[in-house]
């Protein structure tokens, strides 16, 4: 559905994309993961036909985004990063307008349908300017979906909205995957893990890694990290017990507790619990520590350096 081959894009002397290639199959939710400035937005803008690549090719459902731009654009629903909307239009008018522009035969029913999907049907007569940030985000989604495109491209759809709404949007995106090919960008790893079938990690305009969230985790991370708090043992004894546990690569004190890193591919939590018990202590906290994106990129950049 989405094919990207060796995409390059320069702004003057700055290189935003430097040979990016990836693909997304029909019905797949693909996450574009990367820090700010990695080239996520540029990739999406090329795919949506907003700007041409400096070199390389990109196809949407077989249509080249440069040679056959109008056909390619007709297949895409796009929600840009800033969720641009016309503040002085009504919710319904806004979605109907985009439906018309994208050639929907019956724009108004299509708009209603899309508004129902994002749960804004009740507010269809309101002015866009009166909507909350989360509602606007959903309205942005509605305009991207109104023409029922095979490909939906969402640029950081969860940025700047409150946590409850973030969860809503994530669920919506995940649901979209049933009917559409979804490409969405984020810089939050867990979001990508929760929503995506596959993740493409961009860094400095290149694909740093690509795969399912699980496989990526396995290739990239040298092991899970676990936070442990122990009762009934002196810190020295606890540390000794932890270090001796099966599968533990490293254990260090951290505040009132300890941070334990397991060997690659091993879930160390049962071993840690067992070891503490055997030493006569009691585990009062055993919590996996989420890896931050910074960690991953440090890792990736480190790899690249090697």
């Amino acid at each position: 559905m989405i094919e990207v081959e060796n995409l390059c894009r320069r702004y003057g002397s700055a290189t935003a994309l430097d040979g990016v290639s990836f693909a997304a199959q029909s019905g797949e939710v693909v996450g574009l993961l990367g820090p700010n400035g990695a080239g996520k937005t540029t990739t999406m803008r090329i795919l949506t036909g907003f700007m041409p690549p400096t070199s390389g090719r990109a196809r949407i459902d077989g249509h080249d985004v440069v040679e056959d731009s109008l056909a390619a654009r007709a297949k895409v629903g796009y929600l840009p990063e800033r969720t641009p909307l016309y503040p002085d239009m009504t919710v319904e008018g806004c979605v109907t307008f985009w439906a018309e522009l994208r050639g929907v035969k019956k724009p108004r029913p299509a708009a209603h349908e899309a508004l129902r999907k994002v749960d804004l049907f009740g507010r269809r007569q309101s002015l866009v300017r009166s909507l909350s940030k989360g509602m606007r985000q959903r309205l942005g989604l509605a305009q991207a979906l109104v023409h029922n495109p095979p490909v939906v491209i969402l640029d950081e759809p969860t940025i700047g909205i409150d946590p409850a709404q973030v969860i809503e949007v994530r669920q919506t995106v995940k649901a979209l995957g049933k009917e559409h090919t979804v490409l969405f960008s984020t810089h939050i790893l867990t979001e990508a893990e929760q929503v995506c079938d596959r993740v493409v990690i961009l860094n400095l305009g290149r694909v740093a890694a690509e795969g399912t969230p699980d496989s990526l985790r396995k290739t990239l991370f040298s092991g899970d990290r676990v936070a442990v708090q122990v009762q009934g043992l002196s810190p020295e004894a606890a540390l000794k017990a932890l270090r001796a546990a099966t599968g533990v690569a490293q254990a260090e004190p951290d505040g009132v507790g300890f941070v334990v890193r397991g060997k690659t591919g091993v879930d160390v939590r049962p071993h840690v619990a067992g070891a503490v018990q055997r030493a006569g202590g009691l585990v009062i906290e055993l919590r996996p520590i989420e890896l931050t994106l910074e960690d991953i990129f440090l890792n990736l950049v480190g790899k690249g350096g090697n």
Partner: peptide
């Protein structure tokens, strides 16, 4: 300025 131009320019119209 509002960014809607990005949507207009990615709509399937000339």
């Amino acid at each position: 300025r509002e960014g809607t131009l990005e949507l207009l320019l990615t709509a399937p119209i000339n």
